[in-house]
Design a protein around this nucleic acid. Structure first.
Lengths: 220, 220
DNA sequence: GCAAAATATGACTTAGTGGTCACAATTTTG
DNA sequence: CAAAATTGTGACCACTAAGTCATATTTTGC
């Protein structure tokens, strides 16, 4: 957790600081991201950062928390019960994700880069923890669908959950690869990740749904 | 390419050197891997390494080439034409991969860690190059199946290829996560990646085939 | 307006890294 | 066996990083 000093900072300075570090961690992995270079950019002393945060990890986790909070505001109310099947629900998560992206480019870029970011060797424990949480969340979802008789029941739940989670990451990875997203540019210009590519994204999501539906649905 | 000096080295020294660096790059990413620490372990001077190789990347690429060559000996003769469907072919690639693993633990560990390894920021170009090659190889395979009427033809080939390639990586990732592979230990003990887990691996492969078959086959 | 508390500073420490190079040791050659 | 070519060496360079801390500045409370 950040120190008191940070929270007592003026809103403006707090925001500038947060944004600068969001940018840094959006463009680079945890290990690459350099506090030294950000403080230079901000024109403040490095010591200041350590008046606000205990260490680099503290700072990073703060950014994760804040960005997640913002995104939660968009997806928290999306309930599985409100949809006929899992895939409509799945699709809605992405379309609301786009809204989040358009309205909070910086936080979106940061979260978009998070899986890469967590791959840094020096925070492997954090990554493992994160992966555990998310796979167990996906397990619950898959189990729910199986219990309702929607998903097939002849495969290990863990495998299905893992596959599903990774597939959703693949969508983003494919967008980056095929659609030539250029995070560096859009971050500088404060533009959303998927600016001008929303249709392509949703098309990709639909394609992935076609693939996954076939594999996961009990009857199709 | 390594310098002449390296190739003129005694077989024994060459092997010791290669093995030590294979170990290092199997356990760490490209950027993490430390030449300094390996030369200490080997008890030779750092300067020697630079008598053999132009730089770190030269050394790394040599290891990639050598390991790939060894693996090629196992999979090169596996031809799609000799199998009824893609999935039998797919499965055979894994089962021969296991043989390679059992007989060449070090090279296997190295290749197993390669996708992680290539994620290092300082060799992003190499990664992109690699990804391009491999996805276009997968595209050819998918196109072949589509032309023969085996795979569905209502999805972009690129998407299918990318999905298929990433799925095969997922198998390894899942093994590591669920089956508790411990590369660090098995490398030290010169044990194969999948020692005692071959059945679990092939079971996982079969599960993935069940999933992928449903999505990819035109008729099922 | 002044003392005390809070905040800002940046030179400095420690710890890595890849890569170099003048020189030493060894091996090959004639 | 000596001269020449090859190979080995490790101190050293240039660089970058996270984190510290005595000191300076600013803000707050009275």
């Amino acid at each position: 957790m950040p120190k008191d000093t940070f929270f007592k900072l003026k809103e403006d300075k707090k925001r500038k600081l947060t944004e600068a570090f969001l940018r840094e961690f959006s463009l680079k992995s945890y290990d690459e991201a350099s506090i030294t270079s950000v403080v230079k950019e901000l024109g403040i002393a490095k010591g200041s950062v350590y008046q606000y945060f205990n260490d680099k990890l503290d700072l990073f986790m703060y950014l994760v928390g804040e960005s997640s909070k913002v995104k939660q505001q968009y997806v928290a109310e999306i309930k599985r019960e409100d949809f006929d099947d899992y895939w409509a629900f799945f699709r809605k998560l992405f379309s609301e994700g786009v809204k989040f992206d358009l309205e909070n480019p910086l936080e979106s870029h940061f979260l978009h880069n998070l899986p890469n970011n967590l791959n840094s060797p020096s925070i492997k424990q954090i990554y493992d923890q994160f992966l555990n949480q998310i796979t167990s969340a996906f397990e619950s979802m898959v189990q729910y669908e199986i219990d309702k008789g929607y998903f097939r029941d002849d495969l290990p739940v863990k495998t299905m959950a893992f596959f599903l989670y990774k597939s959703s990451l693949l969508i983003m990875e494919q967008m980056e690869l095929f659609e030539g997203l250029s995070p560096a540019k859009s971050i500088i210009n404060k533009e959303p990740v998927y600016k001008g590519k929303v249709d392509a994204l949703m098309k990709t999501v639909d394609n992935y749904i076609i693939i996954l539906k076939k594999s996961f649905d009990k009857i199709n």
